[in-house]
Design a protein around this nucleic acid. Structure first.
Length: 376
RNA sequence: GGGCAGUUACCAGAGUGGCCAAAUGGGGCAGACUGUAAAUCUGCUAGCUUACGCUUACGGUGGUUCGAAUCCAUCACUGCCCA
């Protein structure tokens, strides 16, 4: 993997760059659609490429390991071959499941002992075997196994948790460096900063992560229960330290406004389930604000879903029709909403990039934050 | 013409003397969702009220009773069966 920094905004930390992988290039800042189980829910690969213009998508170690299982993925020739996505893939390590499935696991020094949410069977995830699993899945960018610390954790817990993540990182990195990719293209390993909402812990974590000197770095443990202002503050603290010549990935974030704020603070990569999950639940994000498509007010609004939208569905379907589809629980509703939202997120990241390159990001961004935060 | 069963909130449907403004579904109206256990979850859904509470309500009318969606009479309507 390679990262070329192309432009830096003169008035903020926003930057534009290009990541090169063996599966193609990624122009940053970028939003990465989430395809946990090897599929971006409700979205066809062709739409992902042609309509949404996704450059990289995510998969998930925990979910793909449990189902379909490593044997199938390996026999398929890796996830790219299995799901037909020939562009870059990033896999999360299962660190988020340590947080989101916390009732189903026990954390120990060796790793996370999970009870499968599917059938209750027991599985141990360690920093080492999570590398092995991600070697088999074959993502271009693979993530360290961490504990995603809840945003509400107290200082002592957050400190312990961060230290565990650091110890796990050392083990994971050592194992990564002594193993090889399986499918003839290279993989890179991103370490993850933790430290919850505590500036000194974040600083300490960022310094430790930076010292590992990897090709890219991630910021985890944000948008998990802490106030939004704290999140922004933590991004600032961390990005002060993370190397400027490497991509920075803010994991799991967020709303359109969160993304713009993140870009301004020097983040290059984002992923979030929001455009897809909220889309399936009837919420549309547009450059004019947020719409709940189930609301009565759209019932006889025959105007296009998003007249300023860049995707096919935006001008082809009307608001009234989409509302009808949601009320009728038609699959098409979820498809349209997911395509629209993802296309919008990719558009937003792309616009930010253009404005960074043009040099007027700092004047463009506040106005766009206001617009996207409105409720329609 | 005769017999039987029924009529409950937007719909379906439970409730057969007080714990009933009335179970449960559905529909409707809102809200939530941030490295996906999510096509999920939550709230509201007679009127007024922030709430307490008050008012009007279980086909119509009239009774019995301290008290009726629930018991009685009668009228209307619906369904099924027999001629």
């Amino acid at each position: 993997m390679n990262f070329q920094l192309q432009h830096t905004d003169p008035k903020s930390n926003a930057r534009a760059g290009v990541i090169t992988t063996d599966h193609g290039t990624i122009e940053t800042p970028i939003f990465m659609p989430v395809g946990t189980a090897g599929s971006v829910k409700a979205v066809h690969q062709r739409e992902l490429k042609e309509d949404i213009k996704a450059q990289i998508i995510l998969g998930n170690t925990y979910h793909l390991y449990l189902r379909p299982g490593l044997d199938i993925i390996e026999r398929a020739g890796g996830l790219h071959k299995f799901n037909g996505w020939d562009r870059p893939i990033l896999t999360d390590s299962g660190g988020y499941q340590v947080f989101s499935l916390s009732d189903n696991r026990k954390l120990k020094e060796d790793g996370a002992h999970f009870r499968s949410h599917i059938d209750g069977s027991k599985h141990l995830f360690t920093p080492e075997n999570v590398v092995d699993i991600q070697r088999i899945i074959g993502a271009d960018i693979i993530m360290a196994f961490d504990e995603c610390t809840p945003g509400t954790a107290d200082y002592d817990y957050a400190k312990q948790s961060m230290e565990l993540t650091h110890r796990w990182l050392a083990r994971g990195l050592a194992h990564f460096d002594e193993t090889e990719p399986k499918y003839g293209y290279s993989q890179t390993y991103f370490p993850i900063v933790q430290g919850c909402v505590y500036p000194d812990l974040r600083k300490q974590s960022a310094e430790f992560i930076a010292s590992q000197n990897r090709e890219g770095n991630a910021i985890g443990g944000l948008a998990v229960g802490e106030p939004t202002d704290k999140m922004y503050e933590m991004i600032e603290v961390v990005n002060e330290i993370l190397p400027k010549d490497r991509p920075r990935y803010l994991m799991g974030v967020g709303t359109p406004a969160n993304i713009l704020e993140g870009i301004e603070r020097g983040v290059d990569m984002f992923d979030c389930v929001m455009p897809t999950r909220n889309g399936r639940n009837g919420m549309l994000f547009t450059n004019q604000g947020i719409m709940n498509m189930k609301n009565e007010k759209w019932k006889d609004d025959f105007s296009p879903i998003d007249s300023a939208g860049t995707s096919y569905v935006d001008s082809f379907y009307s608001k009234a029709y989409l509302r009808h589809l949601f009320h009728s629980q038609e699959f098409l509703a979820m498809q349209i909403a997911s395509i629209h939202n993802l296309a919008f997120y990719l558009w937003l990241a792309g616009e930010a990039r253009k404005h960074i390159i043009a040099g007027d990001f700092s004047s463009w961004k506040p106005q766009m934050v206001r617009q996207v935060s409105q409720r329609l």
